[in-house]
Design a protein around this nucleic acid. Structure first.
Length: 108
DNA sequence: GGTCTGACTAGGT
DNA sequence: AACCTAGCCAGAC
């Protein structure tokens, strides 16, 4: 599996996240057929340039916007989510029980 | 080909 | 619930 094809699989899943919902890195990895590669999801999104991929809907397992080694995008990410109606609590966390995307199982 | 790095996580305290 | 730690694993040197 090349890095490029892994990234494409990841983007394909992220594109399915509906507006107003969120998913976790681990969840995306699993759905992309890349179990235990949650970190790769973050790297793939960091390398992203295609604005059609809703990268901002991906949060960590605690419902937080993950801190970047190079800070900056976090504020935009939050603004984009709030614009879609996603609410944050007083600890900058999203209630996953309420906003987590729960895709219907796919068949071939 | 060993080492280091990191938009991650699950589990223990 | 916050904080640590160990485990994880592909990419870049």
């Amino acid at each position: 599996m090349t890095a490029a094809s892994s990234y494409e699989r990841i983007y394909a899943v992220v594109r399915r996240i509906p507006k107003g919902r969120v998913a976790t890195y681990g969840q995306i990895a699993e759905l992309a057929g890349l179990p235990r590669q949650a970190r790769q999801v973050g790297y793939a999104l960091a390398a992203l340039e295609d604005t059609r991929v809703p990268w901002h809907r991906v949060l960590n397992a605690r419902g937080e916007i993950s801190a970047r080694s190079d800070p900056g995008p976090e504020r935009l990410q939050r603004a984009l989510l709030e614009r879609e109606g996603v609410r944050f609590d007083g600890q900058d966390r999203v209630a996953l029980a309420r906003h987590l995307w729960q895709p219907r199982v796919r068949r071939r």
